[in-house]
């Protein structure tokens, strides 16, 4: 009887201690960052933007905005996260983060010092998308709030990146792949390229007549922000960024990205346009 009582006490202690009470955090205490933007700072080393999911009201009804973007300048990404706690009531967490978006300037300067801490961060997964944006990352995040087909930007980016499997416009671009390229002796890193569509360009202007053959050849040769279109969301993802070690050295447009994938063996399927006897044939 004594022995059974002792065992019961031991089991109770085990149950109490394995509840994880030390690290418990209530869901409503957390602020879920879904996108991180990294720009060059003006007052400090780095300007970090967090796109945070705004929770729906418990009492029902629709929340006006799904996300909020906050920007903080600090010496590091994690420093910015901690500084953000001084004006955000929620404890920011990266566990549901979907993508890290880096500005062109930061990429030219070198990404190692920003990516290495992220690789070692327990909250962030290596499966997070890593992309470079033409212009400012904070601006991209602001424009990214105005979506049409999805409510959450992270989901929007997720779907856009996945759609690239069928178009070949965008390479597989996540922290895992970038880090692999950075560390492996026979590889150089690459990332996808994004941009915000300029408002002034929101109309299709008549271009120069360069002939059908040339048009067919250059059909997909666009960088993000340059696609002649009207309507849809303001962000565009097409093409890729080429790095030497951790520094940006150039861009590949949509067409070149397809050829790159053909060379690396990542090419899956897509439509290609050819001119045969003055007729445009799509295969």
């Amino acid at each position: 009887m004594k022995c059974r009582f002792g065992l019961l006490v031991l089991l109770l202690i085990t149950i109490i201690f394995t509840q994880g009470c030390w690290g418990s955090q209530e869901t409503d205490e957390l602020g879920y960052v879904i996108l991180i933007g990294i720009d060059k700072g003006e007052k400090n080393i780095v300007k970090v933007s967090f796109q945070i999911a705004v929770p729906q009201p418990v009492e029902g009804g629709e929340q006006k905005k799904a996300t909020e973007v906050v920007t903080v300048e600090a010496a590091s990404i994690f420093g910015a996260k901690e500084l953000a706690s001084s004006f955000i009531s929620k404890n920011l967490t990266f566990v549901h983060n979907k993508a890290v978006i880096v500005s062109e300037d930061i990429a030219k300067e070198g990404l190692s010092k920003y990516i290495n801490p992220l690789v070692r961060c327990r909250e962030l997964r290596r499966t997070n998308y890593l992309t470079v944006v033409r212009g400012e990352a904070s601006e991209f995040l602001e424009h990214n709030k105005e979506l049409i087909f999805e409510k959450y930007t992270s989901r929007y980016i997720d779907l856009l990146m996945n759609a690239s499997k069928f178009t070949g416009f965008v390479p597989e671009s996540n922290i895992h792949k970038f880090y692999q390229g950075l560390k492996s002796p026979g590889l150089q890193p690459i990332t996808a390229l994004m941009a915000v569509k300029n408002k002034e360009d929101d109309k299709i202007t008549k271009g120069q007549d360069i002939g059908n053959e040339k048009k067919a050849e250059e059909e997909m040769a666009y960088l993000p922000g340059d696609i002649p279109r009207k309507g849809g969301a303001k962000i565009e993802i097409i093409g890729q960024v080429v790095f030497r070690d951790d520094k940006l050295v150039g861009f590949l447009n949509g067409k070149e990205t397809r050829y790159y994938q053909m060379l690396t063996g990542d090419f899956q399927k897509e439509y290609l346009l050819f001119q045969i006897r003055k007729n445009l044939i799509r295969v």
């Binding site: 031991l10 201690f17 030390w22 690290g23 327990r122």
Partner: peptide
């Protein structure tokens, strides 16, 4: 600690493991 209970002190986990192993 790395995988699941990030904030739990190591002494508590070793204690839980050794108690279970004892049983």
């Amino acid at each position: 600690i790395i995988t699941a209970l990030t904030e739990t002190p190591v002494i508590v986990l070793t204690l839980v493991f050794i108690l279970a192993a004892w049983i």
